[in-house]
Design a protein around this nucleic acid. Sequence first.
DNA 1: GTGAAAGCGCTAACAG
DNA 2: CTGTTAGCGCTTTCAC
Lengths: 329, 329
Amino acid sequence: MGTPTMEDVAKAAGVSRALVSLVMRGSDKVSDASRERVLTAAAELGYRPNLAARHLASKRSLTIGLVLNDLHNPFFPEVADGVHDAAIDAGYHVLINSGFLRGDLEREAVESFIDLGVDGVLLAGARISSADLEQLATRVPITVIGRHLRSTAVDSVNNDDRAGGRLATEHLIELGHRRIVHVDGGQGAGSSQRRSGYTAAMRDHGLEPEVISSQFTEEAGLRAGQRIASEGPAPEAVFAANDVAAVGVLGALADHGLRVPEDVSVVGYDNTSLAGIHHISLTSVDQDRRTMGSLAVEVLLERIGGSRRGAVHHVIAPSLVRRATSAER
Amino acid sequence: MGTPTMEDVAKAAGVSRALVSLVMRGSDKVSDASRERVLTAAAELGYRPNLAARHLASKRSLTIGLVLNDLHNPFFPEVADGVHDAAIDAGYHVLINSGFLRGDLEREAVESFIDLGVDGVLLAGARISSADLEQLATRVPITVIGRHLRSTAVDSVNNDDRAGGRLATEHLIELGHRRIVHVDGGQGAGSSQRRSGYTAAMRDHGLEPEVISSQFTEEAGLRAGQRIASEGPAPEAVFAANDVAAVGVLGALADHGLRVPEDVSVVGYDNTSLAGIHHISLTSVDQDRRTMGSLAVEVLLERIGGSRRGAVHHVIAPSLVRRATSAER
DNA sequence: GTGAAAGCGCTAACAG
DNA sequence: CTGTTAGCGCTTTCAC
């Protein structure tokens, strides 16, 4: 007879189906004796509630969808850890989808989460357009992690990328560097703020900003590094918009015989596990990803629960972690 | 009136609900005129089929669940890429869950996928017990990636870890090394086969195997490396059971002033993106993760479709990728 | 506390 | 080709 249903459990326990439903949902309007009977009957039959049916009837799924922009960037797994912790605590399940670095696929991922009936969606490192985001937010509560928003419909949790960009740049300036090139993150989340923090810090110190357009991937960092190393004299320092790109830059510099940090200092962003690897030991701007993930869940659940109307935008302060790739001139 | 339902579309298009259902499922038993009417009505209303309802009624969800053992290990995202490609081609959605390196959590992840009603489950790098696996397989089709199985109920796609272990070891032997230590992967998937390949190769060449028990994490590799570097004279070479652990070993060796490959050669396993990073340039055993992911989807869909009864266990050949961490003695 | 009845939005025969 | 009729397994009033 296939997998047991609530009906089967009710029959086995000698009660009505509605009573079983109450027990399964942990209601306190059930006598201990009945609860006991139902629970043992359910255990004996190996009964498990059918989520699709529950969801169809109740309009809630106790599930949130998490869209990660790029599974290959170690930044995201750590966000996912924080999300999981907080979600489990709140009794929610988490389902993950990858955006494969593409805004259109992110949109699709969100849509399939909506079709699936999740109660809310978390977007990490989102590259999706603001217009799409606003539109999707009319259909499901959305919180974005790691991207700046001034939306009234979508909540966000982020670090202060502008301050982080400034932090990295001023660190290099303090070390005595004057010609500092920024390898930016293109359309990536937070990229323009990091760039603007860099530019502002340079100007403040009477230095000329020099930006190379790039992407949040090692591949793109490598290409940027090759340009830096081959076109004219090498700069004194490079600030890459994230760790993954910084690693690409490091590789290109090494290929061209440039020593780090003796010839060129390099700073990254995110302080991912990559930066901590002994052989890389990359100076990087840290944002507490785990906390951001947990905070995002809280914010999302507030909106799902309807305990808040307006949007909230959390911004946490980044900090600089000094390692071996940056040194005095 | 909330989100539009099939009923609304039928009304707007002036047809029956069943006809709308046929159109939505892409049936060819519909006149072009009707199809057109239905499609435009659906588009105007912004109608999207409710997956929970569809699933409840049809017993199929066109969704497969992918459980990744550890989001932090770059091995898994690449498997996920292969899985996604093949699944999309077949018209299936993929949902991801992390096992957080724990067998019990993997089990839970599978169970929640079952509750959700996925058509099949893919387990990558599974650490779950065989007994649990067999039990779960009675409830949903399961294919395991990267673990050796002799099950008749669960399919698997794997590389030949024993051959890979031998490959790595013989590479080091050919380079003239005699004292080669193996840092193993503990309970990790494929670990015991890699170890046995190592042991067999050593014995074949009249060498004494030396195994240090460890894990598939950088942290564990670091500890193993510290033991190797501090207890007595350093070995001539180390074969670590995966890249992540190898990176830990590299860090520990460097901390102790040992040069790689001048003092010690190091080989990893998986040939992940980590191994290719310029500053690491780790010699490693490659297994084509992307292909494994795609193949696993094919195998799973065969079973879901019922086109095969018995279990199938694919084994692909690994290959060695030589880089800078291994050199002649 | 407990049971009966209605229905969530969709698919799946089965007639016409 | 199109419409009718039953449910899928669960939640949710609403009486008892």
